[in-house]
């Protein structure tokens, strides 16, 4: 392939592995990648959609010169529209819920062939009938997405909205923890305070009200292959994940809550997993049925 074509394909995030190797061999490829990284810092400030719309509505009001009776009629029309809207909102929903209980994992395909793997203790709600006009779903918990190309794909969580156009990524939205990792393409994360663009290989975490940037070298989340890997996460989150994977309850000293944990555990052997999560912190464990107590040595 010609050098120029190779670069153009790279610019469209469209290289296969072999082509990517060829691209990396180009003299200028490191300069290009540096340019790419720097370009991300020139993003437009976030656009205040709601505020501008309100101003437009005000300006529109000035522009209108309606006689009183048309106002009356449009009032009735608006009332009909609103009641129809409410009717459809409450009586005509076609929401489908996918659930992965503790100690299980669920895989499913969305109407546009996008693939989703739902990790233990997680739930997704999708309006499948509306899917063709709006690719949007609600996530509570953790999931891996392989999105088919098309219009914007939104994952709505309590912590913020993650938007993408055809790419691979994971979202983990738990009570006190939010993490997004991008494996291919670009995703945008929008929370109440900030908007971040994540290129492939980058991740983004929020816990204890703080934002952390990081990067990953893997090409798929490890939990897809029955293993969970952590890098600098609060200990309570590692413990909660272990509880979800084995459907057990763990008690431990809350002093450890915010200790950062880096490591991994398997989903296939509880004892090995417990060792993996206790030994690095110099702890031992005591198991009775579904209850585990961690103690310091």
């Amino acid at each position: 392939m010609k050098k120029e074509d190779l670069i153009i394909k790279w610019l469209d995030n469209n290289l296969n592995e072999e082509e990517l190797r060829a691209f990396k061999k180009l003299d200028a490829s490191s300069a290009f990648m540096k340019i790419d990284e720097a370009a991300h810092r020139f993003g437009a400030p976030s656009f205040d959609e709601a505020r501008v719309f309100e101003q437009i509505q005000q300006e529109k009001g000035k522009a209108e010169t309606k006689t009183p009776w048309t106002r009356y009629v449009s009032g009735i029309a608006a009332a009909i529209v609103v009641s129809l809207g409410l009717y459809f909102a409450f009586f005509n929903t076609t929401d489908v819920t996918y659930i992965a209980e503790n100690a299980t994992r669920t895989e499913f395909t969305l109407p546009d062939q996008s693939e989703v793997i739902l990790n233990a203790g997680s739930r997704i709600v999708v309006d499948e009938d509306d899917w063709s006009s709006q690719r949007e779903l609600q996530l509570n918990g953790e999931a891996y997405f392989k999105v088919a190309t098309g219009t914007t794909f939104n994952v709505i969580t309590d912590h913020g909205i993650v938007s993408v156009l055809g790419t691979e990524f994971t979202v983990n939205a738990r009570d006190n923890y939010f993490e997004v990792t991008c494996f291919e393409g670009v995703v945008q994360v929008r929370t109440d305070d900030t908007t971040v663009r994540l290129p492939a290989g980058k991740n983004f975490k929020i816990f204890n009200g703080q934002v952390f940037d990081g990067s990953v070298t893997i090409s798929q989340p490890s939990w897809v292959n029955a293993k969970t890997t952590f890098k600098s996460v609060p200990y309570y989150e590692a413990i909660s994940e272990l509880e979800r994977q084995y459907d057990i309850e763990i008690t431990f000293d809350p002093v450890l809550n915010n200790t950062l944990y880096t490591g991994s555990f398997t989903h296939e052997n509880l004892e090995t997993a417990l060792e993996a999560i206790t030994i690095p912190l110099n702890l031992s464990y005591d198991m009775k049925g579904k209850n585990v107590v961690l103690k310091s040595n």
Binding site: D12, A39, H40, L165
Partner: peptide, 14 residues
């Protein structure tokens, strides 16, 4: 075109 592609992540076709 460059920034829509690199920053906004839009494909060439879009």
């Amino acid at each position: 075109a460059f920034l829509l592609n690199r920053v906004e992540g839009k494909r060439h076709k879009e």
